[in-house]
């Protein structure tokens, strides 16, 4: 559905995209992940035909975005960054206006408008002025606009920015419901969001693709970063020796807690679940165990691992 080949975009003074290539199949929900300035919006703007690339090409539904922009525009629903809307218009009025621009026939619009309002849960507020609505509602108006003409591809640039957690959850549901009919590409710099919504994750950094994986592969990669925390009442030396002797433990750290307990942070080798092995070892030695938990790494850890950017710097 989407073919991106060697996409490069240079602005005066800097290169935003460096030979980016990937393809997206029909019906996929693809998450574009990266810190601000990674090139997510630039890629989406080129896809939406708003900007031409410096070199390379993009094909959407078989049409080249640079050569056949009008054909591409008919087949995409694009929500730009910050979801710009005409704040002086009413919801229904705005959607009618946009449908007119997108060439939705009056006949088609009669049924389609109701469907879209229903799907985006806007039926009750269709007469409200957009400027007087909350961010969550506005975001839904933006999505309603993007899906209005039933495009094959939906491109959403940072759709959940500024939403509260409840709104984000509703939004995720909405996106998932779209995947049956459309191919969805969305960008974000919130890692948990792509993890929950997308089938496939593209990680972008400094205009280059760092990773292109299915959610499962990403999870497997994350598995290698999993670590286990255990609190054990045992002598320091003895515990240290037996942990070193266990082949499935790649690395460990210990710290002394009060009342004779030691806290161990353990990293497993490969993707082995070391918890049963550890439990058996402790039982065998006759030590006391009071906590044994596996800490799921967030995608954030993988992201940091890939980009070498500290989490608190990712927004810079």
């Amino acid at each position: 559905m989407i073919e991106v080949e060697q996409l490069t975009k240079r602005y005066a003074g800097h290169t935003a995209l460096r030979a980016l290539s990937f393809s997206v199949k029909k019906g996929q929900i693809v998450g574009f992940l990266g810190p601000n300035g990674a090139g997510k919006s630039t890629t989406m703007r080129i896809m939406s035909t708003f900007m031409p690339p410096t070199s390379g090409r993009i094909q959407i539904a078989g049409y080249d975005v640079a050569r056949k922009p009008m054909e591409v525009r008919k087949r995409i629903g694009y929500m730009p960054e910050n979801n710009p809307l005409h704040l002086d218009m009413r919801v229904e009025e705005y959607l009618r206006f946009r449908a007119g621009l997108k060439g939705v026939s009056a006949d088609r619009l009669r049924t389609r408008l109701g469907e879209v309002l229903e799907l985006c849960d806007l039926t009750n507020v269709k007469r409200k002025i957009i400027g007087q609505m909350s961010k969550g509602y506005r975001q839904r108006v933006g999505v309603a606009d993007a899906i209005l003409h039933q495009p094959e591809v939906i491109i959403l640039d940072e759709p959940t920015i500024g939403l509260d957690p409840h709104q984000v959850r509703l939004f995720r549901k909405l996106i998932s419901s779209l995947a049956t009919e459309h191919t969805v590409l969305l960008s974000t710099h919130i890692l948990s969001e792509v993890e929950l919504t997308c089938d496939r994750i593209l990680i972008l950094h400094d205009g280059k693709l760092l990773a292109d994986d299915s959610k499962e592969t990403i999870h497997r990669r994350l598995g290698s970063l999993t670590h286990v925390v255990a609190e054990i009442a045992a002598p320091w030396e003895g515990l240290s020796q037996s942990l070193e002797a266990m082949p499935s433990i790649a690395d460990f750290k210990m710290e002394d807690l009060k009342h004779g307990f030691l806290k161990c942070h353990l990293t497993a080798r490969d993707e082995i679940d070391i918890r049963p092995l550890l439990f058996e070892e402790i039982k065998h030695r006759g030590w006391t165990l009071r906590e044994l938990t596996r800490q799921q790494p967030a995608l954030e850890d993988l992201f940091v691992h890939l980009t070498h950017v500290r989490p608190n710097q990712k927004d810079v």
């Binding site: 708003f50 710009p84 809307l85 621009l101």
Partner: peptide, 14 residues
């Protein structure tokens, strides 16, 4: 300035 230009320019209007 409001960004609606981008939304307008990506509809199939010449």
């Amino acid at each position: 300035s409001t960004g609606t230009y981008e939304a307008l320019m990506t509809t199939p209007v010449s």
